[in-house]
């Protein structure tokens, strides 16, 4: 996936990737990544858990603006099936520019 990401960024489009295999991402070096140690097939979490899916999307988008060093991987703090997303603090509009 990182190879595709690099080609899109090379075309002048800013990208953020979600990774569930940190080892591959470290080798491929896409420009910006958020990493989750979650099972295959579940990059946004569990079916029907829209609060969880929203939190992952918002953290990916926060990272898109936060990362300044090409190749950075941010490890998201969300544990698999052990988080309560009701307490999640989303980025503000100012964090997304």
């Amino acid at each position: 996936m990182g190879l595709i990401q690099r080609e899109i960024e090379r075309a002048g489009i800013a990208t953020i990737g979600i990774s569930i295999v940190r080892e591959f991402t470290e080798k491929v070096q896409p420009p910006r990544t958020v990493f989750l140690r979650w099972p295959f097939g579940h990059p946004l979490g569990e079916p029907g858990n829209s609060a969880q899916q929203r939190a992952v999307v918002l953290e990916a988008l926060r990272a898109l603006y936060q990362i300044e060093e090409p190749g950075t991987i941010i490890d998201l703090p969300f544990r698999w099936r052990r988080e309560k997303y009701a307490d999640y603090l989303p980025p503000t509009a100012a964090d997304l520019e």
Binding site: I8, I13, T15, I16, G17, I18, I20, V57, L64
Partner: peptide, 13 residues
């Protein structure tokens, strides 16, 4: 994507 004037791409595995 460029021709479609896309500014940002989110990639999911």
């Amino acid at each position: 994507l460029k021709a479609d004037q896309v500014d940002l791409v989110l990639l999911t595995p």
